[in-house]
Simulated assay, not measured.
Amino acid sequence: MAYSTFGPVLLINAVLSVLLCQVPAALAAEQGGTTEKEFKAWLDYIRTTESQPHFKEFAHKVKQPSTTIVVDLKGTGNFTSIQKAIDSVPFANANPVYIIVKPGVYWEKLQIPATKDFITLQGHGRLKTFVVWNDTAASVNSTYLSASIAVDAQYFAAMNISFQNAVPAPAPGVEGQQGVALRISGDNAVFYGCAFIGHQGTLYDQQGKHYFRDCYIEGSIDFIFGDGRSLYQGCEIHVVPVAGSITAQSRSSATSDSGFVFLNCTISGTGVVYLGRAWGRYSRVVFLYTYMESIIRPEGWQNWGDPTRESTVYYGQYMCYGPGAGTDGRTPWSHALTDEEAKPFLTLDFIQGQSWVPLVIPGLRL
């Protein structure tokens, strides 16, 4: 998929963005705080409450009747707003809810709270159904609050839909211009055939186990970032100016199981980028069987300005190809993986996905 495919939508965004009003400040309180530290503490707390369903309950509940809700801007469905459809899902939901979103550009900021698990958001194709907003870290005083869609629920799925943060490319040296298209903080989430479009900080893979399959991810600076434990399979990663780094994984300890794995992906675009920067001291990112255009810097990886991280990060490649995939010029502290070293990253086992991915999207060919 070429970047130019999204040109008409970007033009619409530029024209209509002036009409958008800011999200109320009360949103921060609903999400558990105004700082990321407060938010993570709140998220950990809410997940320990007895009202939250456990995995075994979900495995049983999927056999129960599901609910289908249709969203259509033209008024032929149950709602004209995706958020209103989400709001209609019962508190402490424990049954599958399918929200079918008809074609259109939905200018709204979406929040799926931790009390509404088992929601599937399904569009009519990522070139036909768009969710768009334009907050920045500066406009809402927080990167994680800038997301066009924020998902705190467990067992969430999105299919055939695009999520975009319409903030323009940041000027060199300007701070606070991170504009997140998706923040995913819930566990056991699947994204299939989706697109994530932005510039700096497009996809905030904050925490939890996630599976991205056949998705398109576009950005420029640290545009796949966070502390998630995620497998990206068959995805196209497209770099746009001003290019900086594809990933900024934030694993903070040697015992953490988080990390980003890119399997059978494609890296395309313009500019010159690092494969990743060491946002976390134990940052972990691996690319396997991935095609890389010549936009990759020869050294591949960057230590975030802290040489001490070079001995603790885990960065690797395995069987990658293309003009940007050569390992001869890579930093000496990255790895050209052996067959044995690559094994833990080649299947859904990395995210324990065999047990939950088929339940989140039944019928998905793994």
Rank of each mutant, 00 (worst) to 15 (best):
52 Q>N: 10
194 C>M: 05
263 L>C: 06
341 E>L: 12
69 I>N: 03
283 S>Y: 07
199 H>F: 14
7 G>C: 04
93 N>D: 15
52 Q>F: 05
37 K>T: 08
186 G>L: 00
363 G>Y: 11
284 R>A: 01
26 A>V: 13
50 E>N: 10
47 R>V: 13
73 L>G: 09
169 A>K: 06
33 G>D: 04
332 P>M: 09
61 K>Y: 14
157 A>L: 03
107 W>T: 11
214 D>S: 15
87 D>V: 04
326 G>A: 04
336 A>T: 15
71 V>T: 08
186 G>D: 02
44 D>W: 06
216 Y>C: 08
34 T>H: 13
212 F>E: 07
147 A>K: 10
194 C>W: 01
214 D>V: 09
38 E>G: 00
33 G>H: 03
104 G>F: 01
288 L>C: 11
111 Q>D: 08
298 P>S: 10
294 S>T: 15
204 Y>S: 02
216 Y>F: 15
197 I>V: 15
329 G>E: 11
106 Y>R: 04
125 G>Q: 10
256 S>Y: 12
349 D>R: 09
67 T>D: 13
330 R>Q: 10
148 S>Y: 07
80 T>K: 12
153 A>Y: 05
121 L>R: 04
234 G>N: 13
99 I>W: 00
9 V>L: 13
126 R>E: 11
165 N>S: 12
261 V>A: 01
336 A>G: 01
60 H>N: 08
66 S>W: 13
341 E>C: 04
112 I>T: 03
129 T>A: 04
39 F>E: 02
251 R>P: 01
281 R>T: 14
201 G>L: 03
274 Y>L: 03
249 Q>M: 10
229 R>A: 00
252 S>E: 09
63 K>S: 06
206 Q>W: 15
234 G>A: 07
364 L>R: 05
176 G>V: 05
151 V>T: 09
158 A>S: 11
